[in-house]
Design a protein around this nucleic acid. Structure first.
Length: 869
RNA sequence: GCAGAGGUACCCGAGUGGUCAAAGGGGGUGGGCUCAAGUCCCACUGCAGAAUGCUUCGCAGGUUCGAAUCCUGUCCUCUGCACCA
């Protein structure tokens, strides 16, 4: 439809508009480097595709899944067509936001309601976000209840009323019908109530649905002059027509329980009808009088029949339903809100419905061999034109009836374009097939279990996703596939927001043209706030400009990293620039290929371990579509780790090359252009696009290697921190650092604690006696220190747990395997002195040298005592 | 009204019971490199402090030895549905 509207504007044909749009979007996609299989490209507006729309329609027709009927439909004046229920929001058209009105039309419907059960039940088996599932469930709107027959006194007729609350049956004090209900007419006709009713019905009819909903705060109705009988009590109750009853939901008749339904309560008050309370909020008590309806579940009271009082909730409902069924006066039923899919559109640019209307034979399907029924290209579109140009296209309309051969007219309605998107994913599995929509074997192969991951906006939660699910099931029943659910896993990407002018007082967002100006309606200076990017606000950015400025990979990196796909994000030029810098930094690492000439380096082991660890974390994240996490590793961590290794002591060529190769693979998914060039520069001669990436197993020692190094990093951080403080206390510049590592006995005790912890030892209860009988405890001079250390190790302080609980796995192995901390630090002492800017660094285990500044007592394993001189 | 999502430092944003003063980025500050600029590197960015303590994850309570995380209430924001019987 947008194509058709655009065609009218420029006086062209929607075909040309569509194709030029496709061209331009295809170009964008290619520039962004999306790796699609372009051989499978399809256009739903092309007859090679919509041919199969029509073919499928005929199959549905054979299955009696298609129906032509005249019914009130949602009509949008601006779009000049009817709309399906799903496409009406707040009584407004989902496309143009204009109000929708009801109009009677002979139209084609797809009987989606035949699949309600499956659509509802199968939600259990697919991985959709909960909110989408909830939205679909709400839309389907299944409610369990009862249909209750209220005989009309002095007639043979009865009113069937649907209710979800049969437990309130004894509180029914009147019955309300929708004004459109056929019984209304027959009840009033020829009586003195007829005039009032007609006036009322007309009033309801005239109102647009939108007004009606607004007016409904004022509930109105008329008495129809007749009474019905409560089927369980025989009580006589008046029958009303009410403006708040919806004809199309349930049976169009409501049993009114003013005691337990606020809507009925309001109505009863207005027309002075009795209000009876038959449920109590508290077991065994009389209901409270509150002046409002109690709508929750309660215990039945005041039942005129025995064996009901005291029943609660479902039990109460079942008891009433059983009683009704026993007497043949009602039954338990299910009502759904979901309706059939109104397929007809009175517009040109869609798939023609393959039907011929013959005066003799009625609607006749176009024979399969005559497909496709093609849209004529020789149609002129002009601005301001209304109506469907197909209807006036003689050549298109006038045909011969395929059944009896007399002149007949072609159907001029076209299909809702959601029909196109309801099975395109199946066509992708076999896009070039010209004898059937798709081959069953291919479709089943690719679609096994559904599309693995389907990403789309939340706006499709009901429309597209429900239609596609219905279609897949229906096509399965046609025999075209064995797949029941189209999408096994759905992820909804967030919206992209950008700043837009905003008036606080009026709570309105304005076009960016008004940036910095005053509010057009209240003259207050506009502020800025973040709003969904949209054309109407003008707060959009063009990907093309961004690509030209920064390159496709930077834009890709920004999109993938700046926000979790599910979260939505704030557009930020500065963030984009910083991602661009990141790209340069990564690419800049290639210079190390020239700078590093040594064969081996002291950080080789560490860097290789880090690479393996990073790769496997990255691999997990990517497999799990935690893209942001993955990109963080591939584009941020990998860079800083390499920088660290080089700064820390350097690496050898061989390690560098292996690192670079692995890194290139990790760079590929998010930034393929960079990655391929990278790969080539480091001397790989195959394309990454054709490379199967393998996660090679981690080395057993990796975890220890990394733990040792991260201990050192902590030490340096700590040193830096302490130095700053020490400087403030010292009179002269600090030139020497003394590091005292843990004394042996503390290591030994920690090892024992670690072993006890592994056996689930209860330190709280048994720790005290353990340490008191420990040999270390027997030394009077040490006793105090031992006790204090033991508490720190196993109990911790009020805020933090004992150290033994907070050790990482690597640290634990490090300590228990006899790691020589002092030796490790000595090796790094040159680096430490450079980094924190002191002339010398002395390292020894506490007790093995002078206890400088009394810092030995602070030394524990992996956290040495530090002193500056 | 109902349902869903959410409120985390200057900003964006990770984080579902202890290893959290809280990842990462932006911005800011200081330093290195440089004639200079930054498509470069390092550090700092709650308060105090020789390694500790204090205050902090919308607000108010609660559970717990221990809460950004669990529970209750409350306020606000966004999204969807809506006289649905």
């Amino acid at each position: 439809m947008p194509a058709e509207n655009a065609a009218m504007k420029i006086g062209g044909h929607p075909h040309d508009v569509t194709w030029s749009n496709i061209e331009s979007i295809r170009e964008d996609l290619i520039r962004m480097g999306f790796s699609y299989d372009w051989r499978r490209e399809l256009a739903t507006s092309d007859s090679t595709y919509y041919h199969w729309n029509q073919w499928i329609f005929l199959k549905f027709h054979e299955m009696e899944l298609v129906e032509r009927r005249t019914a009130p439909t949602n009509w949008c004046d601006t779009c000049d067509t009817v709309l399906a229920n799903e496409q009406v929001k707040n009584n407004r058209c989902w496309r143009c936001n204009e109000e929708v009105r009801q109009k009677q039309f002979p139209s084609w419907w797809l009987k989606m309601t035949k699949y309600t059960d499956q659509l509802l039940d199968d939600l259990e088996n697919i991985e959709f976000p909960d909110n989408v599932k909830t939205m679909q469930r709400n839309w389907i709107g299944r409610s369990h209840g009862a249909e209750i027959n209220f005989p009309i006194i002095d007639t043979e007729e009865e009113i069937k009323a649907f209710t979800t609350r049969p437990d309130t049956i004894f509180g029914v004090t009147f019955v309300t019908l929708a004004p459109e209900h056929p019984l209304c007419e027959s009840l009033v006709s020829g009586t003195k109530f007829e005039n009032d009713f007609r006036k009322f019905a007309e009033e309801c009819n005239k109102m647009s649905e939108f007004d009606r909903i607004n007016m409904l705060r004022d509930k109105k109705g008329v008495f129809l002059g007749r009474y019905a009988e409560n089927p369980l009590t025989g009580d006589q109750i008046p029958i009303y027509a009410g403006n708040f009853v919806v004809a199309s939901y349930g049976t169009g008749a409501v049993m009114a329980v003013p005691g337990h339904d606020q809507r009925d309560h309001d109505f009863a008050k207005k027309y002075d009808l009795p209000i009876v309370q038959v449920l109590s909020e508290e077991e065994g008590k009389e209901p409270k009088v509150t002046g409002r309806a109690f709508e929750g579940l309660g215990w039945m009271v005041n039942s005129p029949k025995s064996r009901f009082d005291g029943l609660y909730g479902d039990e109460a409902k079942t008891a009433v339903i059983n009683a009704l069924e026993k007497e043949g006066k009602g039954k338990g039923t299910i009502q759904d809100r979901l309706k059939d899919w109104l397929l007809s559109r009175q517009r040109f640019w869609g798939t023609p419905i393959p039907i011929i209307h013959c005066e003799e034979c009625g609607p006749v399907p176009v024979p399969e061999n005559d497909l496709p029924v093609e849209l004529p290209l020789d149609v002129v579109f002009k601005e301001g034109q209304s109506g469907n140009p197909l209807a006036s296209h003689e050549e298109f309309v006038n045909v011969i009836c395929p059944k009896c051969g007399i002149p007949a007219k072609r159907e001029t309605d076209t299909m809702d374009t959601f029909y196109d998107s309801s099975w395109y994913f199946l066509r992708f599995t076999d896009a070039l097939n010209d004898s059937v929509p798709f081959d069953k074997i291919k479709a089943d192969y690719w679609m096994k279990g559904g599309v693995d991951l389907y990403i789309g906006g939340i706006e499709h939660a009901i429309m597209h996703l429900l239609y596609a699910r219905f279609f897949t099931k229906a096509l399965r029943d046609v025999g075209l596939n064995d797949v029941s659910e189209p999408f096994s896993r759905l992820v909804c990407q967030g919206m992209v927001n950008a700043p837009t002018p905003y008036c606080v007082d009026c709570n309105v967002e304005f076009h960016v043209d008004l940036d910095g100006q005053k509010c057009p309606s209240c003259d207050v200076k506009l502020t800025s706030r973040s709003a969904k990017m949209s054309k109407s606000l003008g707060n959009t950015v063009s990907p093309e400009i961004m690509i030209t400025r920064f390159g496709a990979d930077t834009v890709r990196l920004f999109i993938l990293f700046a926000a979790n796909p599910e979260a939505g994000m704030e557009w930020s030029d500065s963030a984009l620039e910083s991602n661009h810098r990141q790209m340069h930094q990564i690419f800049g690492c290639l210079k190390f290929l020239d700078l590093i000439t040594d064969d081996v380096g002291s950080m080789d082991t560490w860097l290789s371990a880090k690479a393996r660890m990073n790769f496997s974390k990255w691999n997990d994240a990517m497999n799990d579509v935690r893209i942001r996490e993955g990109v963080m590793i591939s584009h941020f961590d990998m860079l800083s780790d390499l920088q660290w290794a080089i700064r820390r002591g350097g690496i050898g060529r061989n390690t560098l090359l292996i690192y670079m190769k692995k890194w290139g693979q990790m760079l590929y998914p998010a930034t393929p252009h960079l990655a391929e060039e990278w790969n080539q520069i480091i001397g790989q001669n195959t394309l990454l696009a054709e490379t199967v990436i393998i996660d090679d197993s981690e080395n057993n020692n990796d975890i220890v290697t990394l733990a040792a190094e991260s201990t050192l990093r902590n030490l340096i951080d700590n040193t830096r921190n302490v130095k700053g403080l020490a400087e403030r206390h010292a009179n002269s510049p600090l030139t020497k650092l003394v590091i005292q590592t843990s004394p042996k006995w503390k290591i030994q005790l920690m090892i024992e604690a670690i072993e006890l912890h592994a056996q689930n030892f209860d330190f709280m209860r048994e720790g005290q006696s353990f340490i008191q009988s420990h040999s270390l405890f027997q030394d009077d001079a040490k006793r105090g220190d031992v006790m204090q250390y033991w508490r720190m190790l196993t109990i911790g302080s009020k805020k933090s747990r004992g150290r033994v609980f907070t050790l990482t796995e690597g640290e634990r192995i490090l300590i228990t395997s006899g790691f020589d901390e002092a030796e490790y630090i000595v090796k790094a002492s040159e680096f430490i002195s450079e980094t924190i800017d002191v002339h010398s660094v002395a390292v020894y285990a506490a007790g093995n040298g002078e206890d400088i500044a009394g810092k030995a007592k602070f030394a524990i394993p992996l956290q040495p005592g530090l002193a500056f001189l």
